[in-house]
Design a protein around this nucleic acid. Structure first.
Lengths: 117, 117
DNA sequence: ACGCTGTTTCGATGGTTGTCGATGTCGACA
DNA sequence: TGTCGACATCGACAACCATCGAAACAGCGT
């Protein structure tokens, strides 16, 4: 568990300049699009927000799974969020806790930052 | 043209608090996810960045369509970006110019802003 | 060892999406 | 009016995806 498929290692590269600064390159676009795509589903967005706004910065699946779909579907979406590098998970006892990946938010926020100056 | 399908009127509501602040609601999630989804494709992300980084804040299709797919596909993706409320278009003479929707960037950036405080 | 609860994986299915070539539309310019 | 160039739409197809129920897996308590 914990991070079986870190397809995107967000922490590795701060990644590219803001989208407004210069045209994003082909390979960067691939990596970044995967992150936005992960947030491009209402269920995943709510799960992400549930984790992001949780007390102590983390939450177990049982605390966030009330999003209107079956439990296996919740697990499926959490896996997608993990693979996109947005969430990390860790098993403690019976429960699996999810927290934000360290720099995920900043990377995306920076990419979308309006004109800067 | 210009905006045949403003499915999401971004300018209307500043929309919800940052995702880290409180769990996003069901209907807000629907609207916001559509925006992220639009950026969740490498081709669309490059088109968006090409427009966003263009001189004068706008560009005609002919200037940004070099993203490795056919012309109909480019047009298809630009339509998606329009429908998501991220881009606006306007015909002037022979050419169609695209520019960023006014508050699109700020809305998304704010949603992803890390912990504020 | 057994059952219980929380979580993930599996297999199937219906719907969505990215892509293309062909065709249509609109404006410019002879 | 006719043609050309810039974009958009249409129709089709393959690939992908969200969702579910069923089954497997992992700890915990008894």
């Amino acid at each position: 568990m914990s991070n079986p498929l870190p397809v995107l290692d967000v922490t590795a590269t701060p990644c590219c300049a803001p989208l407004t600064r210069s045209p994003i390159g082909e390979s960067d676009a691939e990596r970044v699009a995967a992150m936005f795509k992960a947030l491009g589903d209402p269920v995943r967005l709510r799960l992400f927000s549930n984790v992001a706004s949780a007390e102590g910065g983390e939450a177990c699946v049982c605390d966030i799974q009330d999003v209107g779909v079956s439990q296996p579907t919740v697990s499926h979406h959490l896996k997608k969020l993990r693979e996109a590098g947005l969430l990390e998970s860790e098993r403690r006892g019976s429960w699996v806790y999810y927290r934000l990946a360290p720099s995920a938010l900043r990377v995306m926020s920076d990419l979308l930052s309006p004109v800067s100056t």
